[in-house]
């Protein structure tokens, strides 16, 4: 009993450290990536290549005054940023990085990640609603309708993969894809079923994870040029910092999930040396794509976003679900 407790504690601490380090350095990577795309060097002043920028930013944020504006709903206002960060840390506990590196594998890991994933929309709603700011309120309303619209296609595509794997266990899903890149779920060459819609499914899942994490071009909640800063307009100091880190932690989770479901997890593309490094390489390629997309496209609007979800993503993913089910039955 006590050993399990220590295990879990250690896992949680490692998860927190991993999330925090990732969130901090993803901010650096984002700025550096944005800089390179815009033909400027990005942060350079602190440390070599600006590598000391995240700790400096962190200290700045922590030492700032935590301002609670008058008239806000205090309890909700304070809870919201914690709630933005907490689910992403918990989600990390169930994500397997390799056969052996996993904090606590449970057989409904995927379900649990989705459950905690939906909580981030809750945090945005609470933060925006309690701020007593009209911009924040509009932003939180937007974020919720966005979350509802994008959870559905995301779940449907995930169910497709679950049907192929026959399990909700993330380990199991990866094991089913092992043995070279042609076995990955992204390709339509699954044993016995030639489902040509699988690449589309991958794309849908990727788009949905963009929308779920409130990243550009779906950053309607933040919408800098319309809603100033959206739901975190009124937050200062670490309140803002937690929202910010929560966003980046969600990106990491989105990338991990996409890797596990579609890109074969820690499986090597050529069937050699499977190991945690492949997983890391894959998630960072995906994260780079997140950054790359953000600095390329303009923002969508709320109705074109909902149109995309209800008219394109959901029909296609539903059709794919039916097709996969049929193919599984026939072969």
């Amino acid at each position: 009993m006590s050993l399990t407790l220590i295990n879990v504690l250690a896992a949680v601490i490692i998860a927190i450290a991993f999330v925090a380090a990732n969130a901090a350095y993803l901010v650096w990577a984002e700025r550096k990536g944005a800089g390179f795309i815009q033909r400027r060097p990005g942060p350079t002043e602190n440390g070599p290549w600006g590598l000391l920028q995240p700790p400096v930013d962190g200290i700045k944020l922590m030492t700032k005054q935590l301002l609670i504006p008058g008239g806000v709903d205090k309890i909700i206002f304070v809870i919201a940023p914690v709630l933005a960060m907490f689910p992403s840390i918990v989600s990390f506990v169930t994500i397997p990085f390799s056969d052996t590196i996993v904090a606590h594998n449970i057989n409904i890991g995927l379900l649990m990640i989705f459950v905690f994933g939906s909580m981030s929309a809750m945090a945005i709603l609470m933060g925006g609603w309690s701020s007593r700011n009209k911009y924040s309120m509009i932003s939180s309303v937007r974020a919720v309708s966005q979350a509802v619209a994008y959870e559905i296609p995301m779940l449907i595509t995930a169910i497709t993969v679950v049907m192929i794997a026959g399990s909700l266990d993330l380990m199991e899903i990866v094991h089913k894809q092992s043995g070279g890149f042609w076995h990955w779920n992204i390709w339509p060459f699954q044993k016995g079923l030639f489902n040509i819609l699988m690449p589309a499914s991958f794309l849908i899942f990727f788009i949905c994870s963009l929308a779920e994490t409130n990243r550009a071009p779906f950053d309607l909640g933040e919408a800098e040029s319309e809603l100033v800063a959206g739901y975190h307009t009124e937050y200062s100091s670490m309140g803002f910092g937690l929202f910010f880190m929560g966003e980046y932690a969600n990106i990491v989770i989105g990338a991990c999930l996409t890797t596990i479901l579609f890109l074969g997890g820690w499986d090597c593309p050529f069937g050699l040396f499977p190991g945690v490094w492949w997983f890391i390489v894959k998630i960072y390629i995906l994260i780079f794509t997140f950054i790359w997309i953000r600095w390329t496209f303009p923002r969508t609007t709320i109705y074109s976003l909902l149109n995309l979800s209800w008219k394109v993503l959901i029909p296609i993913s539903l059709f794919n679900l039916l097709l996969t089910a049929g193919l599984l039955k026939v072969f």
């Binding site: 944005a34 815009q38 033909r39 071009p217 919408a223 040029s225 390329t296 496209f297 303009p298 923002r299």
Partner: peptide, 16 residues
């Protein structure tokens, strides 16, 4: 204008 619409990079290219 493109920045108003949420795309940041064209601004930098235009300024170049």
């Amino acid at each position: 204008f493109v920045m108003d619409l949420g795309g940041f990079s064209p601004l930098m290219y235009a300024f170049d």
